[in-house]
Amino acid sequence: MSLRVYVIAYLIFLYAPIALLPVFAFNDGTIIAFPLSGFTTQWFTELTQNAALHAAVRNSLVIAACTAVFATILGLCAARAGAMSDFRGKKGITGFIMLPLVLPEIIVAVSLLVVLRQVLGLSLGNWTIIMAHVLICTPFSIAILNGAFAALDPAMEEAALDLGESRWSAFRLVTLPLVMPGIVSSMLIAFTISLDEFIIAFFLTGANPTMPVYIWGLLRFPSSLPVIMALGTILVALSILLLTIAEIFRRRGVRRAGGTDTGGFL
């Protein structure tokens, strides 16, 4: 009995703030407080008319898409090297690559800002954010793709080689299709992380803010809070959708490679 109470309290603690998002997104009133004053879709309508927000969302989508592609390519190379070849210092290097996973983002953000502005004297823009996001997303990509490669029999590629294919075509014809679900999963995760990342984007953004930075800017105007709630609702729905798709692909990959599932992010 007490265990059931604990579980319910735990779930409320985890999800109550998120559950409140859609509640106030559809509430007819500018003040975020109970009691609710009525149902409206006004805030969603306002979302569609805000040109500055659209620019920020577009920015974020471009950054997230580029990050997903680059992080996954880097992750693919690292995971393949880790799975298929043995070299001196492999363990140490793998650990070193995964380090950004636990580095505080604020530290990464500040040091990147210093390097880019003070040391290299470059101007900030979307591409600086993409670089930083690739940095923090690559460990996630490696972790996901490591799983995909671990489930893969190393003899598969050798068999293709043995049957006359070159190294590259053996990779393309056998390894790539077998780890493809992992690649899709990695891209979706990296995309999601990049899309709502704030600290680094806040430090490195140029003239055009990303969506999280824009939302943060809106917070100064209490009257726009319900609009943020509406935007938040959409984002949560989108995140859940993307993560679910990513997990479906990851599980399919494990099955296809003939391994047993040993867990993942979901």
């Binding site: 029999d153 003899a155 598969m156 068999a159 043995d162 049957l163 056998v174 077998l178 296809r256």
Partner: peptide, 14 residues
């Protein structure tokens, strides 16, 4: 001019 039968058979599952 050699071909191999692997211990795990390495049948392409896809």
């Amino acid at each position: 001019p050699t071909n191999m039968v692997f211990q795990s058979y390495a049948i392409f599952p896809h």
